[in-house]
Design a protein around this nucleic acid. Structure first.
Length: 94
DNA sequence: TTTCTAACA
DNA sequence: TGTTAGGA
């Protein structure tokens, strides 16, 4: 038989999870995800109807945010540790 | 049914 | 962070 290679249809940046799905995946409430966005900890993509769509990348970031928040670190501290949401790691200069 | 914003506790 | 109100 021909070997079937599993090809990812969506990349890690592809926004595919609704807030409800992501809340279950991360283990927090949808309200918490909205609060974190307001704090600038995450910046999910939006649909044409203004619904949030989270990517796998957002998932990993949210796990870390959840971990830091569980340690009593406030949003400003989390921002300082993980960096501002949407911030791209600066490319190495020559 | 799910998600959205805003406001209050 | 949770809850409530009103709307798409």
């Amino acid at each position: 038989m021909k070997e079937v290679i599993a090809m990812p249809i969506h990349g890690p940046d592809e926004p595919v999870y609704t807030i409800g799905v992501m809340a279950r995946l991360v283990g927090v409430s949808a309200q918490t995800l909205r609060a974190w966005e307001r704090e600038g900890l995450v910046c999910p993509q939006r649909t044409s109807t203004n619904n949030r769509l989270y990517s796998e990348n957002d998932f990993h970031r949210l796990i870390r945010i959840r971990d830091l928040a569980a340690q009593g670190i406030n949003p400003a501290g989390i921002r300082a540790i993980l960096g501002t949401a949407g911030e791209r790691p600066a490319a190495k200069r020559g």
